[in-house]
């Protein structure tokens, strides 16, 4: 079971700033373990973030994205107390969804 995403979403002047980190090994399939056995590829392929019904961000990943992917983006809209839903899938068919409440940006 994958660990929860860490997501922070702050709204200021009608723009929501989203920073997120997704716990995931992002194994490229290029590495070998101590015994020389190749470590199979295991990486997130797609991520979507929705504000209500509206898709605000999508990322498709290859194995060159770092372990525990970090992302930052901004979208117009969002209000304190509203929810964002993030969902990812990986190349093994594992998936996870997490929700975060938008906060007012500190003044």
């Amino acid at each position: 079971m994958a660990s929860p995403m860490r997501i922070r979403a702050d709204v200021r002047d009608g723009v929501t700033d989203v920073r997120m980190q997704i716990p995931h090994p992002m194994e490229s399939g290029q590495r070998k373990d101590d015994k020389g056995t190749p470590i199979p590829a295991h990486f997130i392929t797609a991520l979507e973030v929705r504000h209500g019904e509206r898709l605000v961000f999508r990322a498709d990943f290859g194995p060159s994205v770092s372990a525990n992917p970090f992302l930052r983006f901004r979208f117009k809209g969002g209000a304190a107390g509203e929810r964002l839903l993030a969902h990812w899938e990986d190349n093994r068919g594992e998936r996870r969804s997490d929700e975060v409440m938008i906060s007012a940006a500190p003044a």
Partner: peptide, 11 residues
């Protein structure tokens, strides 16, 4: 409505 800018990390 989403600003065309992004930050991430790569290998």
């Amino acid at each position: 409505g989403t600003q065309p800018e992004v930050t991430t990390r790569v290998k």
